[in-house]
Every structure is written in structure tokens, then in C-alpha cells.
């Protein structure tokens, strides 16, 4: 027993151990095999194979979208989530391959993706009442009649949500409007821009922190923000912003003219372009100096893409060519 493995066959305990070990080894082997196939580099550098893959996923998403509409009384949540996941996979696929694709293909696939997203949104609003927390004045049209009594009579079981009712100051749920606000004195304030479409927003003076979310086709001009700016879910917008820190999440096709003390970052964004801050109003120089934002750091061009941790330039953002930049805007 003190000697060699061959004698093990007689000892039931060691035999059992041996069997277990074989089992473990084969499991390990299986696991290795499967990770090997998974970890295959998603970039395959061939337009043809990309297009095939893209079209296939697109078709499968489309068919599940029509299916979910036709099925009379489905449990939509998981299905919708699945579709939304496959759309974001598709988005990732494009981003990962965009460095070798011809510009036309990139543009057309991005267009396809945004169409898919729109369809998904409309399907979502059809098949399920809006559940997630959202600010009340979001322009809701169709589902209002059916979802309103429910959402008012019993708010979501997340009992803590009553604290959100004390909303921060801001502009919310506006369309086709010109929105102006001037900050004076030493307001150490946060400000919110959310659910805006086709608006022009002008914020003069210094303030402390700015949250922007769900904004489409807007022009947003902002004086110095001494703290940070957080931007989420924006599309087709023009931003002129100055701040210590700028974070951009889920932006599509936007131009940013920035003055930033640190490196701006993007995450889950594509088609975003950057240029230097171009804003003027009476007294902006004093405001910029007070907020420590007067000196041009050149950081508007040092964008970090959290989804592109490689040495080569991220395909998700670019520097605005000089002949396409706006002139200084006076507000």
C-alpha cells in the first residue's frame, strides 16, 4: 500500500479516488475545449464573412421581433431581453470589426442596428407596460390609457423609491423647445437634462454637476461645470461642454466640443466625434477662470474608450476634421 499505483485496484477507497480523479480530469478537459472555441477572436478580417454573420443575426432578430408581436399573450420580458441582448451583441460585432470594414458597410450596419433598436422599442411599448422607474413627464402616448391606472395605484414594489420624488432641478420631457437657464452666484448645484427631443439648451454661468440622459437631436451649450458631467443614451446631438470630468455612455452619432481638465471617456458609444470648446457669452471668461477651466488642456482629443483597450485608435470615436467644426457659438 505504501508503494505503487498498480496495487490500488485491490483497495476500494483508492479505487474510488482514482475514478473521481479521472472524472475530474475529463471534466477539466471538456472545459478547456469549450473555452478554446469560445475564446476565438471575434475579428476575422473578412468583409464577406462579417456580412454573412451580420445578416444572419439580423434576420433572426427580425423574425423573433415579428414572432413576439404575433403571439397573442406571451410572457414578453425574457424574450424582449433576449432580443435586446442579441442586438447589443450585433452592435459589438460591428464595433469589433469596424477597423477593417469599408465605411459604407459600417454606416449601413449601424443604420440597421438603430432600426432594429427602434423596432424593439416600439414592440416593447406594445407588448408590455413600462415598468422600470422613469421620470413622470416622459412623453408617453399610446400606453398611457392602459398603464396609467396600474402604475399609479401601486408603484413598483421597490419601496425605497419614494426618495426619488425630490427631483433635482432640470429640464425634462421637452420637445422642439429652446431652454435657457442662467446660474448666478455661488450655486453649488446639480442640474439634469433628460428626455429631450429636438431642443436647444443653453446653460450659462457656473454650476457643480450635470446629468444628461435620453436626449435626441438636441443642441446643448453649457458653461463651466466645476465637478463632473455624466451623459447617457444620447443620439444625434451637438454638445458644447466644459468640465473637470466628462463621462459619455451609450452615445450614437454625436459631436462633442469639450474643454476638460481630465481625459474624457466613452463607453458603449460609437460614431462620436470630438473638437475643442467653442462657446461664448458675456462673462464666460471669468466663469471659466473661476472654475479652473480657462486653460486649454488639449484633453478634448485624449478620449479613453473603455471598450477599446488596444494601442490602435478606437473605431468608436474620432477627432472632428477642422473644416467640419462649428464656429464659436454665442449664447
Amino acid at each position: 500500500m505504501n508503494d505503487h499505483t498498480d496495487e490500488n485496484s485491490t483497495d476500494p477507497t483508492t479505487q474510488r479516488k482514482h475514478a473521481a480523479m479521472i472524472d475530474r480530469l475529463s471534466n477539466l478537459h471538456q472545459a478547456r475545449l469549450s473555452t478554446k472555441t469560445n475564446s476565438k477572436d471575434p475579428t476575422f478580417e473578412s468583409t464577406q464573412s462579417f456580412l454573412t454573420l451580420f445578416t444572419n443575426s439580423k434576420q433572426s432578430i427580425e423574425s423573433s421581433l415579428t414572432q413576439i408581436q404575433q403571439t397573442p399573450n406571451p410572457d414578453p420580458n425574457s424574450d424582449l431581453e433576449k432580443i435586446s441582448n442579441s442586438i447589443s451583441d450585433l452592435e459589438k460585432l460591428v464595433a469589433e470589426n469596424s477597423y477593417f470594414l469599408p465605411p459604407y458597410e459600417v454606416r449601413s450596419s449601424l443604420k440597421t442596428i438603430s432600426d432594429l433598436k427602434q423596432t424593439l422599442d416600439s414592440v416593447t411599448s406594445k407588448v408590455k407596460p413600462r415598468k422600470k422607474f422613469s421620470f413622470k413627464n416622459k412623453p408617453a402616448k399610446k400606453p398611457e390609457s392602459e398603464s396609467k391606472p396600474e402604475s399609479e395605484s401601486k408603484p413598483e414594489p421597490e419601496s425605497q423609491s419614494n426618495y426619488k420624488i425630490t427631483d433635482s432641478p432640470g429640464f425634462r420631457g421637452k420637445e422642439n423647445a429652446i431652454l435657457t437657464k442662467e446660474f448666478t452666484g455661488l450655486e453649488i448645484r446639480e442640474f439634469v437634462l433628460s428626455d429631450l427631443t429636438n431642443c436647444e439648451v443653453k446653460l450659462k454661468g457656473c454650476f457643480r454637476t450635470l446629468f444628461i440622459n435620453r436626449v435626441q437631436n438636441c443642441k446643448i451649450y453649457v458653461g463651466p461645470v466645476s465637478g463632473s458631467i455624466l451623459i447617457e443614451e444620447v443620439e444625434g446631438c451637438l454638445f458644447v461642454l466644459a468640465s473637470h470630468q466628462i463621462r459619455i455612455h451609450d452615445a450614437k452619432g454625436c459631436d462633442f466640443y469639450l474643454q476638460c481638465r481630465s481625459r474624457p471617456i466613452i463607453e458603449r458609444s460609437f460614431g462620436v466625434r470630438f473638437g475643442p470648446y467653442r462657446l461664448y457669452y458675456d462673462g464666460i471668461e471669468t466663469d471659466l477662470k473661476e472654475s479652473n477651466l480657462y486653460d486649454d488642456t488639449g484633453n478634448w482629443a485624449n478620449v479613453d474608450d473603455f471598450q477599446w483597450l488596444r494601442a490602435v485608435q478606437s473605431p468608436n470615436w474620432s477627432i472632428l476634421p477642422e473644416n467640419e467644426r462649428i464656429d464659436t457659438i454665442k449664447i
Binding site: 425605497q160 432641478p169 453649488i188 448645484r189 446639480e190 457643480r208 454637476t209
Partner: peptide, 19 residues
Amino acid sequence: NKQDIQGALSPNEIAKVLN
């Protein structure tokens, strides 16, 4: 954090929200 900002929730409120 950011208690110096006017609209910030107090620590008590944060504790309730985070349960």
C-alpha cells in the same frame, strides 16, 4: 459622497434607499 452639493440625499436617506 458629494454632501456639499445642494440636492444631495443625506446619509440617512441613502441608507434607506440602499436598505
